[in-house]
Design a protein around this nucleic acid. Sequence first.
RNA 1: GGAUGGGUAUGCCUAGCGGCGAGGGCAGCGGACUGUAAAUCCGUCACACAGAAACACCGCAGGUUCGAGUCCUGCCCCAUCCA
Length: 380
Amino acid sequence: MYRILKQEGRAKRAELTTVHGVIQTPVFMNVGTAAAIKGAVSTEDLEQIKTQVELSNTYHLHVRPGDRVVKQLGGLHRFMSWDKPILTDSGGFQVFSLAGLRKIKEEGVYFNSHIDGRKIFMGPEESMQIQSNLASTIAMAFDECAPSKADRSYVKASVERTTRWLERCKREMGRLNGLEDTINRHQLLFGINQGAVYDDIRIEHAKQISELDLDGYAVGGLAVGETHEEMYHILDEVVPFLPKDKPTYLMGVGTPANILEGVERGIDFFDCVYPTRNGRHGHLYTNYGKINLFNAKYELDHRPIEEGCGCPACRRYSRAYIRHLLKAKEMLGMRLCVLHNLYFYNTMMEEIREALDNGRFAEYKKQKLEKMGNASIKKV
RNA sequence: GGAUGGGUAUGCCUAGCGGCGAGGGCAGCGGACUGUAAAUCCGUCACACAGAAACACCGCAGGUUCGAGUCCUGCCCCAUCCA
């Protein structure tokens, strides 16, 4: 059940009640593609860094260890010992990211496994079956994430196919949720809007999928090469055509600034590899911009990554020490950086919710952006 | 004293066996990363410069050759082994 608690302009403060607990939104989902947050982050850590939702991936878990294995082990929650919500992405993004290893047909997508090259077929039904076996809280529809530069005729055809796939996803999910031996018979299904940078295609698609009465609606195919302005424009145009009484999810986005802009445009859910990947690469988010701990200037810096930060890295360790760990390729270095970045993101979301609760999101956003700059650009 | 193998650019290691204006790797320095094929990738790493061309360089000194890091001679170092 989705309930809007407060609104400020188009920004929403809401909560989604699931069988695995209540998700307070706006929320940033922490990406753990292969049932683990890369960087040696444990589920125990996630509790410390305010994670509400963990995100895993259908394609990757299907390839390894196999969704049937996960099902036999009681589903993803038991498998990874995490009892809070999990969202599984459908494999649709891999249609984009593994473009060199797949062929798209009406029935679905033929992949060559990136692990061993073996042939894998995934269509809407297969994606739903896999996600049902994984027993995530929220399943994503199987879509095609087309590149932002794709031409109009390609995008049009692709989106129409994605719509047909969505109908098949819904039908299959309904069937699976009705089966006796399904682990999570209340699995939610979110549809995904596509259409690259073509407003009219996006809007038309949004209208069509809105009729399917899904549990939530995502905007996909953004942050894949288009400019920030294009992305914000599309959100301006499309979100109003998605059901008001359903959660919205901006897939794969993004920088702290992207998230603030997304919240302002009515988005509830976000996810992005930035905090984890950048963390592993030594790029740390702070309220004053981004720092690269590999830089020589931090060699003797005894301060924490960010003064006053409550994360496990900042509570105890200096920039100099963490820099050393990173340079020495000690696992702890990456781990601390990932924990810091996720804590930063999750804390920012907490602040956003609080600001919305108090009707001062606009003010919060302005101040945050002024201090931080567009954290994907500004370096300090 | 003898034998053998070596000495390759800014720090370390290394390819190289007559066309090299010398290729790699590590370390260093910097950058990129948006539903994760990413603990990855890219750049830089003698000097100079980006417009047809910069005099550098392979332990040192000679030599052979059109041409030598590569072959020859001597010397200096290093390693291992034998006296």
